[in-house]
Write a protein that binds this DNA or RNA. Structure first.
Lengths: 329, 329
DNA sequence: CTGTTAGCGCATTCAT
DNA sequence: ATGAATGCGCTAACAG
């Protein structure tokens, strides 16, 4: 900065003011300084700036699995919005492991990031961050009732709409493949499933709610069991991973979709429109969800929001494709 | 740090030495300091540390499109290895746009990152970074002959093996759907395609090399044209995006795969084993490629490598599935 | 509007 | 093995 100052014939502090938009500096000087900086290839040092001004333009993003298109889309949306605001994304994969998540939180504290977007595994993580003055936005799910900002898919409405679509086609025995119902995500989807049955005066056989683990292989086994033990005419999988398992099992049995059985999934991802028949799904606008998260943390950081917690609900949209049809018989 | 020092009854400099492994400190003092730090919830400030020591544990990662599973896997591999080494990943999506790429490079320079992993769009970007003392690893492709480290899929060998697989099945008119041949990636795949024909004494009709743009829709149009104008019995797509377009067109025409036409793709991604028939592909071990990139930058940063450039070639593996079969007639 | 002054929190000399 | 002193490059007070 000294060099730039000399080159432009001003003092270092003027360089600082001229380079950043904030602070006073006459247009003439500002132009001169910018030119000088450009000429000698000066690039400001973020570390020094952050240290002095106690701010940073790095935002922490903590997700479970980048290889899952859901998280990749979420991260893509976040990054897009952050980049537009000239912020950077520090991305950490915590593999849905509490220990890794806490470790990541500590690292982000060390980096003095002003904000973190996290798909939480443990309530402790967002808590610790908040306690240390970091603005936290939870994405996709809520653990218990936290008191922080959160951006969610409208799981209940989406699942209800999807279930209703099947009920309207005459299905009365619909299996739900689901991995968890403790988080708001699974709980919401299950609630929507239930609500649709209730609204349409169809008794819900609780045995048709098939719990499995978050894993395509396990989902396949659970689907097998569901088909063996119960006469279902349709299956809804609660997310894209479980859908893989369900589809694999149906194909293996050479069941005609949708003639013999209908299949639908929550969380639309690209492969679902490539398989034949293409899957009926609920698109939760994941990229947009990511953008919302980013906009929210940025607004918090800039102090543009009132203190009370913000709950953003991103709409879920039913996409009817070929995998759902009239109930057989 | 002052607080920790007081709490532990030592000087600030001792705290510094005790917390980081390097530097001298008696075991007793070290334990006492660590305990004190833990007790008062001290978290070191990365910005201050970076400023003073002129190092940073943030690595820049510049990719084209996080929503493409290829890049997501690459990033996942990189992050995994970085995290294990207690480094952080600053991820930037440049959308394959030269301007955004340069902007990102500048930001990373400002952050004083010691290393960057980039899937380059322009040779200028890695060049600028290197000129400023940043260790650069190019991933997936080489632009012209650069002089930096690079991690590549063994494109030629993989494409050759895939092409040979089809030739062995009796195909003599194989269409190649490809978007670019200027980068090492496309060039290598085309070279492998050619080499396989040569080795097997099959004349290659140059019209069967169908150039398209990097976009599923365009790939579909190109496939349509290829099918209309030429009698091909098999199609190879040069990457996962083009494969989507090709598959869509084949399905639209209700061509029986592989009875009427075979389809194969370079760059295996999950959906390719979900469609029916599952696609024969070349798996380029993308995650491992990411890990290699990370290991390479880290080794450079630690000064463990001799100055001459390193070229890592990640093996490509043929995976035969149902979409390829004997040539018709 | 601009220059001067004084640190931000830490790691690294240099003494001891 | 430890403590004291000295900036890293920058921004934010303050004074002019």
């Amino acid at each position: 900065m000294q060099d730039v100052a000399r080159e432009a014939g001003v003092s270092p502090s003027t360089v600082s003011r001229a380079l950043h938009t904030r602070g006073y500096a006459s247009p003439a000087v500002r132009a001169r300084v910018r030119a000088a900086a450009e000429r000698i290839g000066y690039v400001a040092d973020h570390n020094a700036r952050n240290l002095r001004s106690r701010t940073s333009t790095s935002i922490g993003v903590l997700i479970s699995d980048l290889r899952n298109p859901f998280y990749a889309d979420l991260a893509a949306g976040i990054e897009e919005e952050l980049r537009a605001a000239e912020y950077q994304m520090v991305l950490v994969n915590d593999n849905a492991d509490p220990a890794e998540e806490m470790q990541a939180a500590e690292t982000l504290l060390a980096m003095r990031v002003p904000g973190v977007i996290v798909t939480p595994v443990t309530a402790k993580c967002p808590q610790v961050l908040q306690d240390n003055g970091v603005h936290v936005v939870c994405a996709d799910r809520e653990l218990g009732r936290s008191n922080g900002d959160v951006v969610l898919s409208d799981n209940k409405a989406g699942a209800r709409e999807l279930t209703e679509h099947l009920l309207n086609l005459g299905h009365t025995r619909i299996g739900l493949l689901i991995d968890e119902t403790k988080w708001s995500t699974g709980a919401g989807r299950l609630a929507g499933f239930r609500a649709a049955h209730l609204d349409n005066f169809v008794d819900l056989d609780e045995d048709l709610v098939a719990y499995t683990s978050f894993d395509a292989g396990a989902a396949r086994q659970t689907t097998r069991k569901l088909l063996n033990d119960h006469e279902v005419t349709a299956i809804i999988s609660a997310n894209n991973v479980l859908a893989q398992g369900a589809l694999t099992e149906l194909k293996e049995r050479r069941l005609k979709i949708p003639r013999q059985i209908s299949l639908a999934a929550y969380d639309d991802v690209p492969w679902m429109s490539l398989v034949q028949p293409a899957l009926t799904t609920v698109d939760q606008s994941t990229v947009e969800m990511g953008r919302s998260c980013a906009r929210l943390v940025l607004a918090r950081i800039r102090g543009e929001l009132p203190p009370r917690r913000r709950i953003v609900r991103v709409p879920a949209r039913l996409i009817v494709r070929g995998s759902t049809g009239p109930a057989p018989r």
